[in-house]
Amino acid sequence: MRPDFTATDPLAQLTEIRAIMERSSRFLSLSGLSGVGAGVVALAGAAVAHYYLQSHFADGYAYLLGGSRAERLAALPFLVLLAGTMAGAAVLVAWFFTRRRMQQQGSCQPLWNSLTRRLLVALALPLGAGGLFCLRLYLGDDAGLVVPGLLLFYGLALLNASKYTFTEIRWLGLTQMVLGLLATLQPAWGVLFFALGFGLGHIGYGLLMYARYERPGAAGATGQSQAAA
């Protein structure tokens, strides 16, 4: 509340009120570079999965989908380990760039505050349910729906989280949901859809947000309230 205004200037009052409402309810320090980093992690993970499955199963991912339950079980530890590593690496990268951005903004708030907590819970609930649901699909006879399911639930999680951070993240969520639905049409291309959604989707969103708010000279780069239009 440093900048002062005279009590009789209604425009200054309204502007400050809006800024306070915005920054008290949304986490606006999420760096676009976090998205780019997460996308790169996803692309690398998709490549690792592709080559691993190619070398262990005749036709890679497509074969696995039509394979026996025993074969899918054999690939499960690798896939779970890979997914866990990717999630961990993505969170680490996101944490790094976001913390750096908070320092650049001169924020004295700890990164783990009530806003980030709320944001992460909003993300984690749909994602956790979706993850378990996809595990169930994989163990049943619907492995082809795992990638569409992951994209759909992740899209819903982002849509849910858009209440607590930049509203633009809603577009990333909708993109993931559309890709998830499209992926049901070509289950064999699952790895490709995964790379498109989690990889290119994140990178595109991250670059866009970086250009919009963080690039030196960007409209929202220095503003206190980066009110998403």
């Binding site: 205004f5 009052q13 400050e16």
Partner: peptide, 10 residues
């Protein structure tokens, strides 16, 4: 007072 306005805004 602007502090009160701020509190209410939050």
């Amino acid at each position: 007072h602007r502090v009160r306005l701020g509190v209410m805004a939050v």
